[in-house]
Design a protein around this nucleic acid. Structure first.
Length: 241
DNA sequence: CGCATTTGACCAGCGC
DNA sequence: GCGCTGGTCAAATGCG
């Protein structure tokens, strides 16, 4: 299974590199007059897990005084009810709202959040409804959490349940720490396999089960996309350190 | 009563 | 320098 995942990851990584190269070419038309949000190389429906690798030289050209160390910016798109005006994106972290503004380019108010789980956590989050689709919340994350998400802490300290990430709303696309893996199909299939075959002592049955899980996982585009995003995010984070 | 949220004020960056 | 805009602060308010 790992081998298959590695192969799929390599293929996806090459595609990702191509996409990123195309995006950086497209991004040569700056529209924003202010300094921030220039490093988001998302192309609409693909998550923008932009890293500082491609923006350092841009920033150094524009503003030499801009620090090379720049907060990581990523975006997450979350579909919610139109009637839901709370602007809350449940991503497993604990946030404290510290401001709200109506911006010029979007009539919907933008909410500002700080991570309140750890006092020293520098991560900030901006949440605003999408101009195109007001049922979609756009959450912009700045920085990296210097602590484990509360959901993981619960899982590690208490009972380790599968899929314990508390996502209340329906995630459309997410990135970085908010990656949501919909593994319910594979888990269910394995559970069904276990239920239908309570005795899995034979190595053939185990091998069949593993192969079945691997194939179902690698065939799932959602899983491979999420896996590629997660691994590339890890790689970029280690490279930037 | 303590904590989170709200909201107007304030500040800094940017363009003219 | 001035006005506009986005981001943040902090007192007021609400809620459990």
């Amino acid at each position: 299974m790992l081998k298959a995942m590695c192969e799929s990851y390599n293929a996806l990584q090459s595609q990702l590199v191509d996409l990123m190269n195309k995006n950086t070419e497209k991004e040569l038309s700056p529209t924003k007059k202010r300094k921030s949000e220039t490093s988001n190389n998302n192309n609409g429906n693909i998550i923008g897990n932009s890293e500082s690798s491609s923006t350092d030289e841009e920033e150094s050209c524009k503003k030499p005084r801009e620090e090379i160390i720049k907060a990581k910016i990523s975006r997450a798109y979350v579909r919610t009810e139109l009637s839901d005006t709370s602007l809350v994106v449940k991503d497993g972290y604990q946030w404290r709202k510290y401001g709200q503004k109506v911006t010029r380019d979007n009539p919907c108010p933008r909410a500002y959040f700080k991570c309140s789980f750890a006092p020293s956590c520098p991560v900030k989050k901006k949440v605003q409804r999408s101009v195109d689709d007001q049922s979609v919340l756009v959450a912009t994350y700045e920085g990296e959490h210097n602590h484990l998400p509360p959901s993981q802490i619960e899982a590690t300290s208490g009972s380790s349940r599968l899929g314990s990430v508390p996502v209340g709303s329906t995630p459309v696309k997410s990135s970085g720490p908010t990656i949501t893996l919909d593994l319910t199909n594979s888990i269910k299939s394995s559970d069904e396999a276990r239920n239908s075959k309570p005795k899995l002592d034979s190595p053939e049955a185990t091998q069949y089960l593993v192969e079945h899980m691997a194939s179902s996982l690698t065939k799932d585009p959602n899983f491979t996309a999420a896996l590629a995003a997660a691994i590339s995010g890890r790689m970029f984070s280690t490279n930037s350190n």
